[in-house]
Simulated scan of single mutants.
Amino acid sequence: MENFDRNVFVNCPFDRDYKPLLLSIIFTIKYLGYLPRLSLESLDSSESRISKIANLINESKFGIHDLSRIMSSTENEPYRMNMPFELGIDYGTKFLKGGAWSRKKILILEKEKYRYQVALSDLSGSDIINHNDDAATVMKEVRDWFVVSESISAHSGNKIWQKFNEFHAYLYDRAVMNDGHESIEHLQIAEILKHIDNWLTNVNADIKDVA
């Protein structure tokens, strides 16, 4: 499986309110040298959503799952079950498929500590990380998870956050000022991933030039 050991399946909300956290997560993954994989990376009407998700999970050693939208926000609003469903597929792949998939590593995120137990008590006793809907916090938690689980060295969460803000300014200049998009929120995930790659390439080139 190509890039299995670097692929990171990202299962999170795609609504506008969550967008700053999503950008923070995928930037951190890219910054650390891994490859974020999301269902929004391609739009192919001939492929069912669940088939696409199952393939991404199958191709990814890592899974980051945010359950912060499983709780209803208003009366009579149903739970949003897509994210726990996809988490279940990832767990099943890890524990039932064997082989390389037994090496899978999973990070579960939530907005508030222990809140998930009301809707998903089977996860009681698991190490669930809460982020309080804060982009800087989720960045630090994702960074720390990779450092511990993969025994890698990396810049601090504060340093990566600083770089993310530099990238965000670059993204605004390129997408809004140069390309005429109404706002960054109107960019597709595939576009943002390319902009991250371009920015990181330029930053690394500048570092080499200085050295």
Rank of each mutant, 00 (worst) to 15 (best):
E2S: 04
R6M: 12
R6H: 13
N7G: 11
N11A: 14
C12W: 03
C12F: 06
F14N: 14
D15M: 11
R16W: 11
P20D: 05
L21D: 05
L22M: 08
I25A: 12
I26C: 10
I26L: 11
I26S: 10
K30N: 13
K30W: 10
K30R: 13
L32K: 08
L32R: 08
G33R: 09
G33A: 08
G33E: 10
L35Q: 14
L35V: 10
L35C: 13
L35D: 14
S39K: 01
E41R: 02
E41M: 04
E47Q: 01
I53Y: 04
I53W: 03
N55S: 03
E59V: 02
S60A: 09
S60R: 07
K61N: 15
K61D: 15
G63E: 00
G63S: 04
G63V: 00
R69N: 06
M71I: 01
S73F: 03
T74A: 14
T74D: 15
R80P: 11
N82Y: 10
P84R: 08
E86V: 01
I89G: 02
Y91S: 15
K97D: 12
R103M: 10
K104I: 01
K104W: 01
I108S: 03
R115Y: 09
Y116R: 02
V118C: 11
A119Q: 15
S121D: 15
L123S: 07
S124E: 15
G125F: 10
S126L: 07
I128M: 07
D133F: 04
A136Q: 09
A136P: 03
M139N: 01
K140R: 15
V142P: 03
F146M: 08
F146W: 06
V148S: 14
S151V: 02
I152Y: 08
S153K: 09
H155L: 07
S156Q: 11
G157Y: 13
G157H: 14
N158T: 09
K159A: 13
K163C: 03
K163H: 09
E166H: 11
H168W: 08
Y170V: 03
L171V: 00
Y172E: 10
Y172T: 03
A175V: 03
M177N: 09
E182F: 06
E182Q: 07
E182T: 04
E185T: 00
E185M: 05
E185G: 06
H186K: 05
L187D: 07
Q188T: 07
Q188R: 12
E191T: 07
L193K: 06
H195F: 15
N198V: 00
D206W: 10
D209H: 10
V210W: 12
A211I: 01
